[in-house]
Design a protein around this nucleic acid. Structure first.
Lengths: 356, 356
DNA sequence: TGCTGGCACTCGGCTGCTGTGATTGCTAAC
DNA sequence: GTTAGCAATCACAGCAGCCGAGTGCCAGCA
C-alpha cells in the first residue's frame, strides 16, 4: 500500500496519540483532528486532517465507532505502523546495563532466568509476559541418579541434555542398599548415554542378576515414559507473569476481558500454537489483534521472539497486551531480552550448535 | 453466644439461602423474610421471621445494606454457622474413589501431586486453591551430583531430604572429566550426608589436590547457599490454581476484586502469613473475611489444612474464595485432600516421623 | 407474653428526558 | 488542493419520577 508522506505522518501521529492516551487518566478514547493539530503543530488545518483521516479510513487503516467520535486504528493500521512508520528505539544503555546485571546475579540458575526474563518484560512494557525454558529439538538422555529414600522407595532423578530435570519416585518389592543403586545408575548412564527417546525405549537391560535386573527394567521404562512426556508438553512449561500489572492499566473495564487474557496466558486459548511458529522463525514476530484468526485474542497483540542457539537449545520470550500497546518499546524490549538470553545460553553450552 | 432453636434455624437457613443464591443467575442479593417462609415452609409468619432477623442483626450475626434490602450474613454470622450450625457433609464414596484414582495415576511424581491437589480443590469447590509442597522443618542434605555439561561448565544437582531438587550450573577455570566430577560428588555425598545447613557451612574441603579442591570448595559453598535459599522461600513455593474458575462466579463484578484475589494468590498480600500458622496447627483452619485483620482479604475466606507426617514433612492445602462460599462442602473437600496427601506421603517416606 | 396481619415508609434501580460538549462531514470560498 | 464555517450527530451525565421489594412498627389476637 502506497501512502503519501502526509498521510503516513498523520497515521503515525494518530496511532502514537491513541496509544499514549491509553496511559493517561484522561478518559479520551479516540483521537480527533483538532487534537492532532494542536499537539503536534501541523502546518495544515484540521479540515485537511479530517479529509486525510477519512481517506485512511477508506483504506481500512482507521475506523470510528460513532459518527461524532474520533478515529481509532484498525489491526491493519497497527500493522502498517509497525512495518513502515515505527522508529526503532533500542533500550537505553542504562537500561541494558541494569538488565545485564540482573541476569548476572542469577547466572547458573537456569530456572531463575525464566522468571527474571518475564519480570523484566513486565516491568519494561507494562504488559503480561510469557517465557518458555530452552528446550532441545529432540529430548536426549544425559544422566540419571538413583537415591535411596526409604525402605523399598527410591528417588529417580533424570537429567536431559537440555538441562531439564525430572524426578520420580519408584517403589520396589524389597529395599536395596545405596551402593547397589549407584551401580545400576552408573551402568545405565553408560548404556543410555546421549540416547534419544526411541533408543531408550529399545534398550533391554538383561545383564544383571534378578533383584537388580528388576530395578533396571523399571528404571528404563520410567525414563522412557518421562522422556516421552517431555516431548509433548510445551504449554505446561509456559511461564507467565504480569497479569497483575496489566490489570493496573486503564484498558481493563470488564472481567470478561480479564478472563480472556487469563485463558490465553494459561495456554487454554490462543498462545500455544504461536510458540512453535516463533521457534521456527528468526527475529521478532508481531501478531496484531485478530490476525491469527483466534477470536479470544481479537483485542490483544502478541510479540514473540525465539532465543537460543541453533536447533538444539531454544525457547521463546514474548509479551501479550492490548492491541493498543506501545509497539516500539515492546518490540525493542523483547528483542533485547532474547539476545541476552541467547548469549547466556551460548556461554553455558558453548558457542553455536555443537552437534548437528 | 446462646441462641434459641428457632433463631438458630433461621440463621442457618438465611446463610444457606444467601450462599445458594450466589450460584444462580438471579440477581437477588440479600435474603428476605418472605423468601425464607416461602422456600422452606416455616410454621410461623414472615413478621416473626422479621423479628428474629432483627434480633440476629442486633447480635451482630446479620446486617443489611439498605433499609429496604434483605439481610446479609456478617463475618460473625458465618463464624457461628461454621462452628455451630453447619452439618458435616463428607464427600461421597464415588467422589472419594475418583480422587484416589487420580492420585494413584500420578504416584511417584511428587510435583504432580501439588497440581492435582489444587485442580481437585478447584473443581470440587469452585474456588481458587493453594498448595505448598511438603517441606521438612529443617533443610537437610541428601545427595548431590555433578554432571559435565560443556568445557568448564558443570551442572550441580542437589537433592534435599524432603525431596526438593535444585539445579545450578557452575563455571570452572578448566574442564574436568566426568570421572573426576563423580569422584568429588561421591566424596561430598559422604562428608555432607544428612547435614543441615549450618553443618554444610562449617565443612571445609581440604583433602584433595588443587584442581579438584577448587571445585570442591565451590560446590560446598553453592550447596550451602542453595540450602539457605530454600529456608526462606515459602511464598515462592506456593502453587495456586483456579483463578479462572473463580472468575466464572457471579460474585465478581469489578476488576479491583480480581486484582485483590490475584495479589492474595501470588503471595503479595495476606495468605503467606497464614501458612506457618496452618502448618503449626492440626485440623482444618477456617478464616472468615476480615478476621485476620488484613484489609485486602476482607471479602474473602480462607480454608487451610496441614498435611504430612510429623514435623519433618509437611505442607498446606487450602482454598480461598468469597466469604459467601459453601463452607460445608469446601471444608469437607479440604479435609479429605489433606488426608489423602498425608497417606501418600506416609507411603513414600514411611509411617510417622522417623527421626526426631 | 408471644405471634400475626396490615400498612406506611424507605430506598435502590430502572426509565425516559434533556442539555452539553466534542467531533465530524459537507459546502462554499480561497 | 486547501481552508473556514456551520449544521448535524451522538455519547454521556444528570435529573425526575415511578416501581417494587422489603422492612419496622403497631394494634389486635391467642
Amino acid at each position: 500500500m502506497e501512502l503519501s508522506e502526509r498521510r503516513q505522518l498523520i497515521l503515525k501521529l494518530a496511532i502514537q496519540e491513541y496509544v499514549e492516551a491509553a496511559g493517561g487518566d484522561d478518559e479520551v478514547q479516540a483521537v480527533a483532528s483538532e487534537t492532532l493539530l494542536r499537539k503536534y503543530g501541523l502546518s495544515f488545518s484540521s479540515a485537511t486532517i479530517r479529509n486525510e483521516l477519512a481517506a485512511l479510513e477508506e483504506l481500512g487503516l482507521l475506523t470510528h465507532l460513532h459518527t461524532s467520535g474520533g478515529r481509532v486504528p484498525t489491526d491493519a493500521g497497527y500493522r502498517y505502523f509497525v512495518e513502515n512508520l515505527m522508529e526503532r528505539t533500542p533500550l537505553s544503555p542504562q537500561e541494558q546495563r541494569t538488565i545485564q546485571h540482573q541476569f548476572y546475579q542469577v547466572r547458573g540458575e537456569l530456572d531463575q532466568w525464566i522468571h527474571l526474563a518475564a519480570a523484566v518484560l513486565v516491568r519494561s512494557t507494562q504488559n503480561a509476559a510469557v517465557v518458555t525454558p530452552p528446550r532441545g529439538y529432540e529430548t536426549r538422555f544425559k544422566h540419571i541418579e538413583l537415591i535411596s529414600i526409604h525402605d523399598g522407595v527410591i528417588l529417580l532423578v533424570l537429567v536431559l541434555h537440555d538441562g531439564t530435570i525430572r524426578q520420580q519416585s519408584l517403589t520396589l518389592e524389597q529395599g536395596l542398599p545405596q551402593e547397589e543403586l549407584s551401580r545400576v545408575a552408573g551402568r545405565l548412564n553408560d548404556v543410555l548415554s546421549d540416547a534419544n527417546t526411541t533408543r531408550v525405549e529399545a534398550v533391554h537391560g538383561d545383564q544383571l542378576e534378578p533383584p537388580l535386573r528388576e530395578l533396571e527394567l523399571l528404571v528404563i521404562e520410567t525414563v522412557a515414559r518421562s522422556m516421552r512426556q517431555c516431548e509433548g508438553q510445551m504449554q505446561e512449561l509456559l511461564h507467565h507473569d504480569g497479569l497483575l500489572e496489566m490489570l493496573q492499566r486503564k484498558d481493563f473495564k470488564k472481567i470478561e476481558q480479564v478472563r480472556d487474557v487469563l485463558e490465553i496466558l494459561e495456554g487454554r486459548a490462543g498462545i500455544v500454537p504461536l510458540i512453535p511458529q516463533a521457534l521456527a522463525s528468526a527475529g521478532v514476530q508481531v501478531i496484531i489483534g485478530g490476525e491469527h484468526g483466534l477470536d479470544k485474542m481479537r483485542d490483544y497483540s502478541v510479540i514473540l521472539s525465539r532465543y537460543g542457539r541453533g536447533q538444539n537449545m531454544a525457547g521463546v520470550v514474548g509479551i501479550i497486551g492490548p492491541t493498543r500497546m506501545a509497539y516500539p518499546r515492546s518490540i525493542s524490549t523483547v528483542r533485547y531480552i532474547s539476545t541476552v538470553m541467547s548469549e547466556l545460553l551460548a556461554e553455558m553450552y558453548g558457542d553455536k550448535t555443537r552437534d548437528e
